[in-house]
């Protein structure tokens, strides 16, 4: 038997908890079914931003509770009645609690423009996907969040996962004001 087994292995998602924030009941049910099939252990749903804020405040604060599981990943629609997804994303990323502001967020949008993808990225989303939803698209986003957790960047105008996914040389005009060696590296408080 080999000592190092580097074969890819199937995830066991039964210990994970995913929050769906989606106003359409049809799409909410579809996402719930798909996550159940993937084996996600706990699936919570909210129909609007206010419900999501209340739920996150409750479950993330009572993290050590035997009865309430904390959220690991948020799947959220962009366009909803009342406040839109951008309001929830801003709230999450500016929250004082580490258990909320570092949460991975996957944005689902019905708008087929790059605008939402760029905007959600600039507000601190980890991933975005455009409807129609597909099994492979959803699985791919979840795997990316699990497999490639990017460090968070805190600057005067941004807080969220590092928007640069690849470390490649950059030939054009440098727009960053801070040089890489001037960046302060910190570690998030452990749970």
């Amino acid at each position: 038997m080999p000592v190092f087994n580097k074969q890819p292995q199937p995830y066991d998602l039964s210990n994970l908890s995913i929050l769906i924030v989606e106003d359409s009941l049809y799409i909410q049910n579809l996402l719930t079914q798909m996550l159940k099939i993937f084996g996600v252990g706990d699936i919570m749903t909210c129909s609007n931003v206010k419900e999501a804020k209340d739920l996150l405040t409750a479950v993330q604060a009572t993290k050590k509770s035997r009865y309430l599981r904390s959220v690991d990943i948020i799947l959220m629609d962009w366009l909803m009645p009342g406040e839109n997804g951008d309001a929830l994303l801003r709230w999450i990323r500016s929250h004082h609690s580490d258990t909320i502001r570092f949460l991975p967020v996957i944005v689902i949008s019905g708008y087929t423009t790059e605008y939402i993808a760029h905007k959600s990225r600039d507000l601190g989303a980890h991933e975005s996907m455009v409807k129609p939803i597909s099994g492979s698209g959803l699985a791919g986003r979840i795997c990316s969040v699990i497999e490639h957790p990017r460090p968070f960047i805190k600057s005067p105008n941004f807080f969220g996962p590092d928007r640069r996914r690849k470390n490649v040389p950059y030939d054009s005009k440098e727009r960053r004001k801070t040089k890489p060696d001037e960046i302060v590296v910190k570690h998030a408080r452990s749970e």
């Binding site: 995830y11 066991d12 210990n15 570092f102 460090p151 968070f152 600057s155 960046i183």
Partner: peptide, 18 residues
């Protein structure tokens, strides 16, 4: 805060997913 900080977050999701 005027500078840039990189914050490394422990990947507890991966630990539990495997």
């Amino acid at each position: 805060f005027d500078g840039v900080e990189k914050i490394e977050v422990k990947n507890t999701i991966k630990q539990r997913a495997v």
